[in-house]
Structures are given as C-alpha cells and as structure tokens.
Design a binder for these strands. Structure first.
Lengths: 397, 397
DNA sequence: TTGTAGGCGTTATCAC
DNA sequence: GTGATAACGCCTACAA
C-alpha cells in the first residue's frame, strides 16, 4: 500500500501549468524519439482540497483492517448505531430526516466509502457480474461488451471481464474464478462449453446468459440469432446474384459453434441449389486482415474458377477486399466477396462490403437485461431471445 | 436465483446430437430471416456428471447463506476444523500429507469453491483490480486492456472494467465504485482527472497507474510515452517530405491530455520550421471512420492548398484514406495523410498509412506489472515508464 | 424510527 | 500440525 502524502500548495502551482483540472503534461521538449526511464520525485502530490485530513486511526481489537473509514466510524461520530448509518445510506426513508442529515454530513466529512464486499458478504447479494469473451481482438466482441457494461453499470453492477482466448478450458477456469468471486451472473459467448464449466455453473445455480447463439437447451437464458439461417441467407443471396463457384472461410469450427453453424448453413444452401461444397475451398482461418488476404490468395490458386468468397466474419472479408485492391483485382467483377457482422469498416471499404448485420450492442444490452432480471429474482431459465440478422447487400457482390 | 434442476439422462442424448462437448446448436431449419421470441422448456438440463448430487443443505442459525458449500462443510466431512481446510488449500505445507489428502478429496467430492469475497474481507487482501478505459469503440484501448487482462489474470487477479466515455465525472464515479468494491489497484487512461477522482484516490492510498501519458507528477505510477514528442516527430517527417500546408485533426482536447499534447507537438513543429498553424485546419473530431472522411472533406474546402493532413489517430486517418479512394483522390499526390497508433488496418490500406507506432499491448502489460508490483507490497510511487514510439513511414506521405 | 444480537465465510492470532 | 477465538465490515432478523 502506498502512503498518503501531504504536499504544500506551491507544488501544485508548479504542476498545474496546464490550467486544466490538475494534470501534469508530457515532457515538452521536442527531442527525438527515444526510450527513457525516469523516476519522479514524489507521488500523490495533489493536495486533497475537498477532503479533510484525518487523525491517525486507532486500532480496534487485534486485527488490522484497511485503515479505511467504516460504518462504525461514521456512527460514532454522529452518535448513532452503525445500522442506522447503513440504513440512512440504503433506505433513507427509514431514517428520520434530521439523523439522515447529520449522517450524510459525517459521511462527507469523513469521506466514507461503503465496503461493498463486506456488504455483499453480509447480504449475500452480489454486486458484480462476469462477462467472458473469447477475444478482445475483434470489435464484434467488444461491441457486445460495451452494450453489456453500459446497461449493467447504470444498474449499479460491476463487470468483471474474462478473456477465454477461444479455449474452453480457459473458459472453465474463468467460470470457476468468477464463481469464487461471487459474481451474481455470468455471460458466456456461444453455446459450446467444457463439461466442467457446465457442471460448475449448474452446481452454483447462478444465472447464465449465453450469447451469439440460440442453443436449443441453453444453460440458463440465451440471446443471439440463428447463425445457420444467417449464413444460409447470405449464400442464397450470392446464388441469386449468379455466383456459382462459392468458397467459404470461417474461424476454426472446433470450439466455435457460431462458425460451425455458419459453415453448415453455407453447405446446406449450396446443396439446396445443386451446387458443390468443395472441401478445397472451405477454409478455416485466424481472425485478422492478413489472414483474409491469405485466404483469398489460397482460394484463387486452389480453384481459379471461384467467383465468390463468403467470409464468415468481416475482418477476414475486409482483409480480402483490401488485398484485392492491392492486387488490382476487380470486386465483384473478378471475384465477389461477402462478409459477416457488418463492422464499421465494412461500409467504408471500396467497394463497400456485402455482409450480414448483427445488432451487437443490442445483443450486449439484452444479455445484460436478462442478467438484471435474474438478479432481480426473476427466473430467466430457458428464455431464448432472437435478435435476428439482416443481409446487407452492398457492392462487393 | 435459478434452481438447480435434475434431468434424466435420455434428455442428454437428445440434446447432444452435435456430438461435441454438449451443446445445443442453432435451430437448423433454413427459414428466411425473421425475428422470433421462443421460450425453451427447461433449463440446466445438462446432467451434472462430474459432480455428485448433494443432499439438501441444513440451515445453520437464522440467516440463509448462498446455500453454497463452505469451508465448514468440508471441515465437517473430513473431521477437522475449518482453519485446517483453509490452510490445506492455501499453504499445503502447513498441513500433514494425510489430512491434506483427505481434505482434497472432500473438496473435490463436495465441489467446494472458496468464497474469495469472504477471504478478502477477512484478510483485507484484494483479489481484483480495476481498469478504466475512455471507450470500448477504439481498438487502441482494448489492446491495452488485453495486455493488462492477460498479465493480471495469470497472476490470479480479476479485472473489473469501467468505461468512462471520455467523461471525467463518469471516471470519478467509477473510481468511487471501484474503491467501494475493494479493488487492489486502479489503472486509468491519461493524466487528466476530476479533482474528486484525485481526492478519492489519494485518500484511499490505493496504487494507481496512469497510462498513455507521462505526467510529470503522476498520481502513482504511469506508463506511456511523450505524445508531444511523437506528434512533433510526425510533423517533422511531413515537413521533411516537403509538405508545407499541413492540417491537423484530433479528438477533442478538452478532457484528453493525449490529444492536447499531440496538438501542441504539431503546433510547435510548424512554428519551429517557420510554418503557419492555421486555426481553420486544426480540427477536433469524434472517433470514427466517417468522421475522418468528413474532416478531410472539410479541410479541402476550407483550405484547398492543404497538401497533408495529420490525424492524431488511425481511425480518423483510415477514414480519410478510404474516403480519398472513393473520391478518386490520389494519396499522397493530391493530399498526404498521416495517422497515429498503427492499428492493424493502417498497414492494409491502399496506400498503406504512415503513422506512429505505439506498443499498446506492452503498455497494458507494463501497467499490469506495475499494479502487481504494488500489490506485492512494492512502492511504485512516482515510477514513470516510457514505452517510446516509432514513426512508421509508409506510402500515404 | 432506532437499536441489539448474531451471522455471512474466511483468515489472523495465539495457544496447545 | 491443529484448533479455538475473534475479527473483517456490513446486513438480516427481531425487538424496543
């Protein structure tokens, strides 16, 4: 723990040259780029203007706490019992206006911050929920996170974040950790999870929301859409446009039910229209622009007759469109390209990308709402919310 | 809370048709896109194969707990005291091999998951840290987050996430919430914070790491680079390339010290080279591709002689490059474009974008390491880590 | 409206 | 090596 340091006011004058809400700026000498490791002279040199300095705290009992101001401190100062202070803060109507007033003043004076972890231990009511994402590299996941965080934060819940790296074992570990952490609900991505994760979740009885998919038997609730249908719809679109030699590229399907469903939708659409699902041009790939370019390249060399490539995510599709541009390929004249997700970039590419739009923010918001419902005591068991999808036909097809 | 439901095995057979680690798939009928709201029939229908079914829990005392297995339950089963179980789990060497063994078995059998929130209350040792980002829309921030989460997770700390939306007041509220939550350290973005946030932080004595900047007087520690120098270096690069009518576009500088420093670096470089810092072409903008396009448009109409635009972030710059492509403008012949950050897209654009590279993952990792150091008892007060920057001259200049 | 008693699940402290 | 006891800071239940 760092100590609280008092600093004289003149130092502040020196440091707040910017004139804005007290911050030091970068070093301002226009020197050439270089790496430096500097050590400053002091920390916490901002004077605490809005809060008074407290006398050193006495020790109660033989254990040392955080040294933080507690409910009891406030109570003592006001001359009431701790529970009254607690109530004044949580259910103000249960406390008389006068005491409430004095309590509020004391709280402000002492700078009391309730200890929510003690609170949720005592009340066994969680104050945080967990979100497990398979990746932080792709904006499609952070969009969902953004929607969820916004909704949850405004309801007073904290969001603890886990990154599973598309690994079910990591996911299971995260689930266990979050359970140990006492989160009140967990948001998962997709519908494929390790058995251990499922056991843990079932045993805990904690509300679970799966996202992006609509498993027939969700663990708890789920919000998503039919990846199968969406993929099928896009391939049908391509076929209607007249393409016949269609290739497909997605993320690895092994631990990814969305990719798997999209691949099945693609295959089924081909079969339904009497086309051939050529294994040579049904590829798996990592998630970056370069991979999209590489996949395009691969497909063109493996089967030069290919007239359209359906990428099951926009990052790959964008990589391919950008690569086509560099290569001087005409899209869609030489080769059509379709994506999935409708990320911001998709509409700005040249030509703009045909893709499938998913309301990711809405997905996150809905997932959050489901968790909030569950936290409010409602049963969300078996609820399945379909957020739908939309094929956006732009110029790459 | 959702109830734990027992389900017969034959249901599992039906549901695991996919053959993979137990998941239901999307509905598989190739129907046209539509929105549906379905309600499933049951939840938690995955049998808990790896864990035994427990007898209903008895109530101890007059309070109802989570109904979760506790240390006492394990202790009772093994015939030792709770503290012994606790020790067996945390410091195995302090417990005899035999008891440890029996305890481990009981833990597995009962599916005991330690309650870390009770643990940190008792030991007053935090198990989570907070990261406050100004946005989840731009990958530059989620890259940092990714680096931090990875490092922190592997040290056993949970990361609670806050999104300040570039608003210092929101940031201050988040700080308060996280403090209430008992996080062990806080990572902030930038160096400009509300006075209230600073007070709160100072009062709490919690380790703080500021990122992206190198304030002369950091609150605690900081990791970043000189935004001023980096901007200066880029403008010098442009000038060396022969550009003279240079425009500048950044995020709003009011609450953003990085943007402010970059603008100052830009202005100083112009002055140092006898060029004019034209206020008509020193713009502020939001953070998206469309905004980059709009800014380019604006600049060209306001001052047609402009031969280069320096965007203080790659999203804007990319938007401009893509817009130029759509408009049929030649880059850099008609107008040069430079960015900042070196996001993945930058190198894939046509032409590839000249920009400033920042090691964002490293930034997050370093910030996390600083927090870990502090959590380990080390003082990180005043530590300032410069991660440097690099001007990447590509083809748009 | 306010207070008392006791517990939430774990760990520090000090005996044995 | 193991255990009894008392916190950690707050809240539920019940009483006044």
């Amino acid at each position: 723990m760092l100590a609280l340091a008092h600093v004289s006011t003149d130092r502040r004058r020196a440091s707040s040259a910017e004139g804005v809400s007290g911050d030091g700026a970068d070093s301002t000498c226009p020197v050439p780029p270089c790496i430096r490791r500097l050590v400053g002279d002091s920390v916490y040199d901002e004077p605490v203007t809005s809060l008074p300095v407290l006398p050193p705290r006495r020790q109660r009992g033989n254990r040392k706490g955080h040294g933080r101001v507690t409910l009891a401190d406030v109570a003592e100062r006001v001359g009431v019992s701790a529970i009254t202070v607690s109530r004044a803060l949580r259910k103000p109507l249960m406390v008389s206006p006068e005491t409430r007033d004095r309590i509020e003043r004391a709280v402000a004076e002492l700078g009391y911050i309730p200890n929510r972890i003690a609170g949720s231990l005592a009340s066994s009511s969680p104050s945080a929920v967990a979100a497990i994402l398979p990746s932080l590299d792709n904006s499609i996941f952070t969009d969902v996170l953004k929607g969820a965080v916004g909704t949850l934060e405004s309801s007073g819940y904290q969001v603890v974040l886990g990154n599973s790296h598309f690994d079910p074992r990591v996911e299971a570990t995260l689930v266990e950790t979050f359970l140990a952490h006492g989160v009140g609900a967990i948001m998962l991505t997709g519908a494929r999870h390790a058995t251990r994760a499922r056991s843990l979740l079932a045993r805990s009885g904690i509300p679970v929301v799966q996202t992006w998919s609509l498993p027939r038997r969700p663990i708890g609730a789920c919000v998503g859409f039919s990846n199968y249908d969406a993929s099928y719809a896009m391939v049908r679109h391509l076929i209607e446009r007249g393409y016949r030699d269609i290739a497909f590229v997605s993320a690895a399907v092994a631990n990814n039910d969305r990719a798997a469903a999209r691949r099945r939708g693609y295959a089924k659409a081909l079969v339904d229209h009497g086309l051939f699902d050529d294994p040579r041009t049904t590829l798996e790939s990592t998630f970056d622009l370069a991979a999209g370019a590489a996949a395009l390249d691969r497909i063109r060399s493996v089967r030069p007759s290919t007239d359209a490539v359906f990428f099951a995510n926009d990052v790959l599709a964008s990589g391919a469109v950008l690569a086509a541009l560099r290569l001087g390929l005409r899209v869609p004249a030489d080769i059509a390209i379709a994506g999935f997700d409708d990320v911001e970039l998709a509409g700005h590419l040249m030509p703009p990308l045909t893709t499938v739009r998913i309301d990711r923010i809405g997905l996150g918001v809905t997932a959050a709402e489901l968790m909030l419902d569950a936290l409010a005591g409602e049963s969300i068991a078996g609820r399945r919310v379909d957020i739908g999808f939309e094929v956006i036909a732009r110029a790459t097809t």
